[in-house]
Simulated scan of single mutants.
Amino acid sequence: MRNADMVAKPFEPIPQRARLSQRLQTAPGSAQSGLTLVELLVSMVILGFVLALVSEAVFQVSQVTRSAQAATASLTSRWSAGWAAGPMLANLVAPPEAAVRKAFEGSANELSAYTTLPVDGGQTGIQRFTMSLRPGDSGATQTELRVAVPTADARTSEPAAIGRFDGRAEFAYLDEAGAIVPVWPPMGVGVATSDPPADLPRAVIVRRPFSDELLMWYPYPGETRKPVPPSLPFESKP
């Protein structure tokens, strides 16, 4: 052996990246592992809870939607039956200044009166209005309930439809004795008695012509006569 072969070679350090590669290759269990069975079961349980909450929320939304649709249908049916006229006719009034013109006049197809709660809500206080029953767009198969109120220039506004009845319909009126009369004021009332006749009916009725079928009943619970003006003190008697 030659002396040149026995000369020690200088130490050369292994690069860090190479050492790390060797360590990963030789380390036991260095391969990438997946989910265990317990982790998979826990994930499925959590997913089940989430799906249950989502399905409950969807069910509640559908319930709210159905309730809203039912309420809308109920309001539509009530409007079609003429319920919008109820508050107006329940707040009738016979003002003392209505001496020249009667406080309430009604026939089978039209009535005119005073109210403190107009259907348009645009005027406070006492307002005169006219309500009528006219054939609808479908002719004899429907009857529209229309309302007109005076405008600022003392004219009558264009009648607005606030209700609709199937078939033909007409007005009738309930007097203080509980009798249904076709016109108001009733014919011949107050002639044979000393009591003044009532200015307002106890109820306005919408019925089928030539029939006892009642389509709508609008009661009036208030005072049916005009208020008596107070007497002046020291009033001279004739």
Rank of each mutant, 00 (worst) to 15 (best):
S67L: 14
L111M: 15
A90V: 03
A94L: 05
G106V: 02
L92K: 07
Y114W: 15
F104W: 08
G48K: 07
A99F: 11
L111Y: 07
A71W: 00
G86R: 09
W79K: 08
Q123T: 09
S43L: 15
Q123M: 05
L92Y: 06
L47A: 15
F49K: 09
V50K: 12
L117E: 10
Q60E: 13
A73Q: 06
A98V: 03
G82F: 03
E56W: 09
L92W: 05
P95K: 06
F104D: 09
A85N: 01
A57D: 07
S67W: 10
A90M: 06
G86K: 08
P95A: 01
G121R: 06
A84Q: 10
E105Q: 13
N109D: 14
A71Y: 02
L47P: 03
S80H: 04
S55A: 15
A103F: 08
P96V: 14
A73M: 05
A85G: 02
L40Y: 11
S80N: 06
L92Q: 05
L89G: 03
P96D: 07
M88P: 00
Y114I: 07
R101P: 02
E110Y: 07
V54E: 13
A70R: 03
A103K: 06
S74P: 03
G121C: 04
T124Q: 08
A57R: 11
A57Q: 10
G48R: 07
P87Q: 00
S74Q: 10
F49W: 10
K102T: 11
T65P: 01
T116V: 12
A113S: 12
A68N: 09
A81S: 13
N109S: 15
E97S: 15
P95H: 04
E97M: 09
G86H: 09
G86Q: 13
A94H: 02
T116I: 06
L40R: 13
A52K: 09
A84P: 02
E97G: 06
V42R: 12
L41I: 12
P96L: 12
D120R: 08
P118L: 12
F49V: 15
Q60R: 13
M88N: 01
A71L: 08
R66K: 09
A70Y: 00
T116H: 02
M88C: 06
W83K: 03
T115C: 04
G106Y: 00
E105C: 05
V42C: 05
A68T: 05
G122F: 03
L111D: 00
E110D: 09
E105P: 00
A108D: 00
V64F: 06
L75H: 08
R78W: 00
A81C: 04
N109E: 07
V54F: 05
G86W: 12
A98H: 04
T76R: 05
Q63D: 14
S107F: 10
L89W: 01
A52Y: 05
A84L: 09
S43N: 14
R78F: 01
M44P: 03
W79N: 00
V93W: 04
G82W: 02
S67D: 13
K102N: 08
S77R: 11
S112C: 14
G82D: 02
L51P: 03
E110A: 11
L41M: 13
A81H: 06
G106M: 01
S74K: 08
A68V: 01
P118K: 05
G82Q: 01
L92V: 08
G106K: 02
K102C: 04
V100E: 07
S74I: 04
L51S: 14
